[in-house]
Write a protein that binds this DNA or RNA. Structure first.
Lengths: 308, 308
DNA sequence: TATCCTTACGGAATTCGTAAGCATG
DNA sequence: CATGCTTACGAATTCCGTAAGGATA
């Protein structure tokens, strides 16, 4: 048994049981991949993969059971390297954060500025992607930290911490009729075409839920990934927007007005997530505490080691 | 990084940093051991061991931090083999139980008889040793299951379950003066020379504690590992015995009488322990439920995966 | 001086990639 | 017939043991 064999098993599952792809991904030859799998199966005395003829189709029962442990071993092997790096150069290394447009654009810049000042030697990579992709990256070990409002909770392999809570707000052109209302209602909003987030992004589910609960049909004329797009179309009069309030900048968005709607939509909690059982370098822990203020060393330590 | 290097690191710590011993233990050459350590240190970029000149003295800070993960990786590697064996042959394999004389001689025979009948193909090895050695064996992965009354609780790496509780009893020759007393007292016992267990065995601490709390000095004329020795000397009149009651067999120990002393000594709980994070084969789980009746599949599953 | 570790070197074993062959959709 | 896996074989690399050398209690 060796690490290469285990890596191949993991990658085979991830790549949908295509050994040619696995070989490419691991920069090795395809026959080598085949042989490694066969050797490991021989050593363990069980078939890991279901085959039809020569093709691999999926994991056998023992394969499924073994996979978890294989993944933990490989994660731990990576942990060894990370721990060693931590001691070799405390202030140096890299940190990959996967997050959504909303966080990257509005919530994180301040934190990142501070982090960069504190750890100038750390190479910080910010990956903008969808909430689901964030989860994927964390699971695959391609990102150290994920930050999003959606998709994070309920993934057993991840530990997550709340960063901050917020409510959607309505954004309209300056002087819009809605600005005259004493208090916003769902009915009033639904009278206009709506521009808001795509499904699966930035609390969209809570928006749908509120209207559905009110039995109110809504005309969503544009669903976008990010608030900048939404604001653009609100500004040209396509409809009114429902956005995260941190996307509104009074100084810059002079043609627009933000109307609070805390009472209309459920609140959203943006969360930070890491993979259970990973070792976080000091600077990564620091980053976590900067983004999720309720988290201190003890909480983090406990959460990382399987607690919670 | 490879498994051999990790094994060498683990074994180096276990063998007190003597690489020659490590080489022997792992059936390899000593220069090979040196090289493997050096290679791993080079790859990780940190020194794992503190050296004076050429000798190794202990772990460095990074070494200590890394060791835990190294041990988990190696344990998981063993888990892979065990899981595979489980599927390859569900009813076949081996099970190593480390336990004390008291359990092996009086508590376990019945269980083992049943187990053998149920799993005739499983090679069951029973290691009789001291409670501390039991813990050592579990920590080193040399035993799958440990059963003892002492030393098990308070070892963080182990999960343990209560098997049964019992109180020490007094054993005297037939017709002894103590048999005439309506109720036994510590004072009455302390008037005689005492024959009982060695420190660290079979609840001895509770015996000392009871007398200490009563301010009663006792004359322990013989301390033995097992009740058979104790009974032998009680029978020849060396003193009176304090033993675990399951050691008394009315049919066979005809020259002796057992006197209950539940009210005099704290109760003892015999516990079964396994190493946290190990994979237990089906038959091993079965063995656990046979010995620790309160434990079912769910409890066990949860306990093995890091939860309390 | 005995113990213990390192370096050096040569042989053995393993690994790995290329080429060829075969099954499957 | 293109894709995907296996077998076969030779080269390269890695691994491992022996021998010799140096430091330390």
């Amino acid at each position: 048994m060796n690490f290469q064999q285990l890596k191949i098993v993991r990658e085979t599952v991830r790549r949908g049981y295509n050994l040619t792809e696995v070989a490419n991904a691991l920069y090795t030859s395809q026959p080598g991949v085949s042989k490694n799998i066969k050797d490991l199966e021989d050593e363990l005395g069980v078939e890991l993969f279901v085959r039809r003829g020569k093709r691999l189709l999926g994991l056998t029962e023992p394969g499924k059971e073994l996979l978890e442990t294989v993944e933990r071993i490989l994660r731990d092997a990576q942990n060894l390297r990370n721990i060693a790096d931590q001691f070799a150069s405390r202030e140096q290394g890299s940190l990959t954060v996967a997050t959504t447009h909303t966080q990257a654009r509005y919530a994180l810049p301040e934190v990142i500025k501070q982090f960069k000042a504190r750890y100038p030697q750390v190479h910080l990579a910010l990956h903008q992607c969808s909430p689901r992709e964030i989860v994927e990256m964390l699971l695959a070990g391609e990102a150290d930290i994920g930050i999003a409002t959606e998709a994070i909770e309920g993934v057993a392999e991840l530990v997550s911490f709340p960063c901050y809570s917020w409510h959607h707000a309505v954004i309209v052109p300056q002087g819009h009729a809605l600005t005259q209302l004493p208090a916003l209602t769902l009915d009033a909003i639904a009278a206009y075409p709506i521009v808001t987030y795509h499904e699966g992004f930035t609390g969209r589910a809570h928006i749908d839920k509120a209207f559905a609960a009110a039995g109110q049909a809504v005309d969503i004329v544009l669903s976008a990934i990010d608030a900048d797009v939404i604001k653009t179309y609100v500004e040209i009069g396509l409809g009114i927007g429902i956005v995260a309030p941190m996307a509104f900048n009074p100084a810059k968005d002079t043609g627009l007005a933000l109307l609070a709607a805390d009472h209309l939509f459920d609140d959203n909690t943006t969360r930070l997530a890491v993979h259970r059982g990973v070792y976080l370098r000091d600077y990564a822990r620091q980053f976590v505490t900067m983004v999720a203020p309720g988290v201190d060393e003890k909480v983090l330590q406990k959460a990382l080691n399987g607690g919670e």
